[in-house]
Design a protein around this nucleic acid. Structure first.
Length: 577
DNA sequence: GCCGTTTTCGGCCCGACTGTTTTCAGTCG
């Protein structure tokens, strides 16, 4: 079992306990364990293989949960989980996903009406059976019917680039209301998560009602889910949910902290405050008895009040950042300006939209020192991949361009490269003699995604062992919202990459963003260099670098962990290895 | 079920909105 599967079992146990009326703190423990395990860079499986003592010291995992992890790893089952499933049918877990139906209502409906699946719930609602239950009426019944419909049509999550677009639109729109002060996106967008569930916007204004009235009139809105004095929730026509919160300026820092999350970071922070005799809410930090806030205007003050330095939003996932902050070992924030060049780009020779010269010009304009041109190899026929002859011609063109740049006294170098296809059998799609002549060899998988985990791992290990590649491109092959990452033993790949001096790419294209944040953390632990590239297919794609940089920040990576923060000379030395 | 600048026992984050209620429970984030 991998980490996600184990996390899912614990999350299900939490749900089942809620449905059966279990202790709420025990429920919290299971839920928290799910979150912790999901964010663990190393697999529990390999930690356990190295000795059970390696499972000690994972925050939130105590004696009992450790035992269940071992049980799951060794037997693939958890007796406690099975036991609970005997009491409560699995279909009830689906019912909890219906918005507006929580554990209390779900178990009431189960007990009173014998409903045990979403289908049965829908039938019961249609038959008008829900309205007679205590605490429910006809309105609730209709809401549930609608929620079931929405669940079925659920558009799911949105790529961060899409959410960014709407964030810009809505912050601009809200600022049209006179008297608004700050209007900023918060939530998972501010934490730069690769997928955004809903968009959270925070505004300060003396007259919140006016802001709310304006907000719910935006033409992109399909439906207003709730509208209050300080908080409203709407759903856009594209399916994205947008939450707006309006507060007074004196609470801005506390509100921004609260609204940025994550939930589990906030729980941990508030727990810490409580132990210090303080209370944190979106209105400020308060002494337990006092009414006057001790902090609230600025986010920094909130952290300071609980004895911590400000924690960058990208780290706020309760993955050890509070402990690191306390001990003064937060990673130094990587900046977009730290990137000195791009190591993965395409020209019109393959499937790019711009010429070699145009790409070089655009990279230079960004202030880069270098750009690796890495067009596809012939196996990727759909992208007009280059055969050996065309690569040789491109090498000459690049040499000529570099001479021209030198004559013009430009401090910029185009690196000769390729994105060579890793064939299904793990061999590379260019001969070794050709690869030897290139500065930067990105090797990527473009086909046969459906291989088994073992086959795919071996395929990539084989490519690494050729000793002819510099970087593994988009190492999991995922396309967010379209294609799942392929099965891969990432730890084995990283171990081998380290051995052969191969870097792993963090592809900044917002549909890809792989390595992801957790992989980045693993790379850091394994001492593997990460190349943050854009895979630019046009000059405008270079802008995507910020998605990559912020994802790297989410993975605790620093400047020294990144290959292309190096100056050209140092980079070439590393690439030669 | 976890955990310890109060603690190996006794705590465990905090508030907004809605519907069905006349004071609040349930849900959500």
């Amino acid at each position: 079992m991998d980490n996600s599967e184990i996390a899912k079992v614990f999350e299900e146990i939490a749900d089942l306990l809620e449905l059966t009326g279990g202790d709420k703190f025990r429920i919290r423990s299971y839920r928290n364990a799910g979150v912790v395990i999901e964010g663990l860079p190393e697999s529990l499986k390999s930690l356990y293989a190295a000795g059970e003592e390696h499972l000690l010291g994972i925050p939130g995992i105590g004696e009992s949960l450790r035992g269940k992890i071992v049980e799951l790893l060794t037997t693939g089952r958890c007796a406690y989980h099975d036991e609970l499933l005997k009491e409560m049918p699995a279909g009830m877990l689906e019912i909890l996903k219906v918005s507006g139906v929580g554990p209390k209502r779900a178990s009431l409906i189960h007990k009173e009406l014998g409903v045990s699946s979403v289908e049965e719930l829908e039938k019961a609602a249609h038959a008008g059976k829900l309205r007679d239950l205590p605490g429910m009426g006809e309105t609730s019944e209709q809401k549930i019917l609608k929620a079931i419909k929405d669940l079925k049509a659920r558009s799911g999550k949105f790529r961060i680039s899409v959410a960014m677009k709407y964030a810009a639109e809505f912050t601009g729109y809200i600022k049209e209301v006179s008297g608004t002060q700050d209007v900023v996106p918060a939530g998972s967008l501010r934490r730069w998560k690769d997928e955004i569930g809903d968009l959270d916007i925070l505004a300060t204004c003396k007259d919140p009602a006016k802001v709310m009235d304006h907000f719910v009139r935006h033409p992109d809105i399909k439906e207003v889910l709730s509208k209050g004095d300080t908080k409203s929730t709407v759903v856009l026509k594209v399916g994205l949910q947008v939450d707006l919160r309006v507060l007074d300026k004196k609470s801005f820092g506390a509100a921004l902290q609260y609204f940025t999350g994550s939930k589990s970071h906030n729980v941990a922070l508030r727990d810490r405050a409580k132990r210090m005799g303080l209370k944190i809410s979106e209105y400020g930090v308060f002494k337990e008895d006092g009414e006057k806030p001790v902090a609230g205007k600025k986010e920094e003050e909130v952290y300071k009040a609980v004895g911590l330095p400000w924690i960058p939003p990208e780290l706020r996932e309760n993955r050890g950042e509070i402990e690191a902050a306390e001990e003064g070992r937060l990673p130094e924030s990587l900046r977009v300006e730290d990137i000195r060049g791009d190591l993965h780009s395409h020209t019109r020779e393959s499937d790019g939209g711009a010429t070699l010269e145009e790409m070089a010009e655009a990279a230079m304009k960004r202030g880069y020192e270098y750009l690796a041109v890495t067009d596809h190899s012939k196996a990727v026929g759909i992208a007009h991949g280059l055969d050996e002859k065309r690569v040789l011609a491109q090498i000459e063109a690049i040499d000529a361009l570099n001479r021209k740049l030198k004559e013009a006294k430009k401090k910029f170098t185009v690196l000769k490269g390729t994105e060579v296809d890793i064939r299904a059998d793990g061999t590379l799609d260019h001969p070794e003699s050709l690869l030897k002549r290139l500065d930067c060899v990105v090797a990527s998988v473009h086909s046969s995604f459906g291989m088994s985990r073992d086959e795919m791992t071996l395929r990539i290990l084989k490519a690494i062992r050729t000793g002819r590649i510099s970087i593994i491109g988009h190492p999991t092959g995922r396309l967010i919202g379209e294609r799942e990452p392929f099965e891969l033993d990432m730890e084995a790949v990283m171990t081998e990459a380290k051995k052969y001096g191969v870097a792993l790419e963090l592809n900044s294209y917002p549909d890809r963003l792989d390595l992801n944040d957790i992989h980045c953390k693993l790379a850091k632990e394994k001492g593997v260099l990460v190349a943050i590239s854009t895979d630019a297919h046009s000059t405008s794609h270079f802008d995507n670098i910020s998605y990559g940089v912020h994802t790297a920040r989410r993975g605790w990576l620093e400047r020294k962990d990144i290959l292309n923060t190096r100056p050209l000379k140092e980079l070439l030395k590393i690439l030669k290895r």
